[in-house]
Every structure is written in structure tokens, then in C-alpha cells.
Computed example of a mutant assay.
Amino acid sequence: MAAAVGTAPPDVKAATGTDTGRPRKPILAGAAIAGAVLVAIPLLLAGSANDERPDSAKGLAADSDTVLNASSAPAVLDDYVAEKPSSSPSRAKPKKSEAPKVAVVQPATPSPSSSPEKKAKAKPRPKATPKPNWGTKTVYATSVLQVGQAWSTNRIRMVMQSDGNLVVYNEKGKPIWAAMTFGANHRAIFQQDGNLVIHNADDRPIWASKSHGHENAQLVLRTDGKVVILHNGAVVWST
């Protein structure tokens, strides 16, 4: 009875074909194949991605040398010396077309002799017109003016005209005073009593200065263009 209750003999395990402690060999092989496939798929995808990169990126990666690359040489102090940047021949920007320069012609500087301002300054200032040196004339009694005769200075003259009028003209020949006596053969007389009288052809007085009563008076043609009769320095009559 004791032998019947114990473990089954080895031939019984082989007859059933089941071993609950170990997996079968086909199952292990399948699991290994599946794992290899799972590992190979990412590698294949990474390789295809590397194949699709442009050549420029590959060249850039191949030519670049960074500090992250373990194979690159370590940096030294000379690598950090500042230098003037030089443009790369392959990456040089096209130069902008410059507008043609226009030559500016400077106006010729006028010579001092041709400058109008200096010419104007070079002209001498006009001198002030000097005052004329007018003269005077003194007529004493008794004096007579016949037709066509005159008492005159370099500024004025008193004329007995042929029309019988006694007129005073200035230096410009303009009449500035007249007795307004008209007729033939008149004459002007400066009398001893200081009176200036105009007589007609019949020797009758037709005009007078009414300055009588001043013995030894003088008739004076002055520089201011006036004809006056003075007595003792006082003016008793004036044109």
C-alpha cells in the first residue's frame, strides 16, 4: 500500500508528455524570434530615417566639429583669439549696385576785381555839393534902370523889361517877383529919399516902393534871393 501512494515512476511522466515545471522548447524558440523582430524594427526605422536625410545635412554633420564630438581635438588658447571676420566665398552676399557718382562742379570764385559788391564798395562816395558862393550887390541913389538894363548878382537880377515890367529872376531864370507895370519906354529910378519908383514914357510915376523918407538908403540884392531897401541896417522894403 505504501508503494502505491508515492510518486509515479519515470515511465509514467514520459507516457503523459506533460511537465508542469519547464516550458516546451518550441515555445521558447518562438518567443526568441518575436523578441528579435521587436528589436530589429526600431533599428530598421532609424536606418531608413538616416537614409532619407538630405546630402547637405550629411555633409554639414560630417564637416562640423563641435565640442560634443569626442574625436575632435581639445580647444587651446589660440582658438579664442579675436580675428576680423572674413566672408566665405561660397556664402558671399551680392553687392548692391551703387548709383553712379555725379561730379559736383563748384562755381568759380569771382576774382576781387569782378565782384559787384567790391566794385560798389570801390566806388568813391559822392562828395557833398558845396554851397554856392552867392554874391551881393548894393545900389546907391540916385540910380536908374532903362529898358533892357538890370541890377544883378551871380544868383538874382532885377530887369526893366521892354514890356515895361520890372521883374526879379533867380539863378534858374525863374521870375520870383514883378511890379506888374506894362507899357513902352518905362524906367526904374532908385531915388535919394530911399524910394524906388517906375516912370512911364510921359515921365509920370506909375509904381513906387513907398520907402520914401529914408535919406541915403541902399537897395541891396542879397544872397537869399531877395531885393531889399536898407536904412541904417534896417529893412524898409523887400520884394
Rank of each mutant, 00 (worst) to 15 (best):
L145F: 06
P42Y: 06
D78M: 12
A61W: 04
E52H: 10
A49P: 00
V81Y: 11
P110Q: 10
L44M: 12
V39A: 14
T18W: 12
S97H: 11
V37I: 15
A29L: 11
D63Y: 04
K93R: 12
D11Y: 05
K118N: 08
V81D: 06
K121P: 03
E83D: 12
D65L: 06
N50L: 15
P116R: 05
A32S: 10
K119E: 00
T20N: 10
K123S: 04
S88M: 01
P94Q: 03
P124C: 04
S111L: 15
S88R: 03
V139R: 00
K84D: 11
L77W: 08
L145G: 00
A70M: 07
T138C: 03
W151R: 01
N69I: 00
G21C: 08
S111P: 02
E117I: 14
L68I: 04
D78L: 14
G59F: 09
A73Q: 04
L68V: 04
D19L: 08
W151C: 01
Q106T: 15
P89H: 05
L43Y: 11
P94D: 00
P116A: 13
A82R: 10
W134H: 08
I41R: 01
P89L: 10
L145H: 00
Y140F: 01
A57F: 02
A61V: 01
G35M: 15
N133D: 12
T16S: 07
P74F: 02
P110I: 13
A36R: 08
L44P: 03
I27M: 13
P112K: 12
V147Y: 07
K121H: 10
A99N: 11
G148H: 02
A32G: 08
K101C: 05
S90K: 07
R91Q: 07
T153Q: 00
S64D: 02
V12I: 15
T136E: 10
G35N: 11
S90E: 11
P124R: 00
S87E: 15
S97A: 15
P85C: 11
L77S: 14
S56R: 14
S143F: 02
N50E: 08
V147C: 07
T66A: 04
N50C: 07
S88L: 05
R155H: 11
D78H: 09
D55V: 14
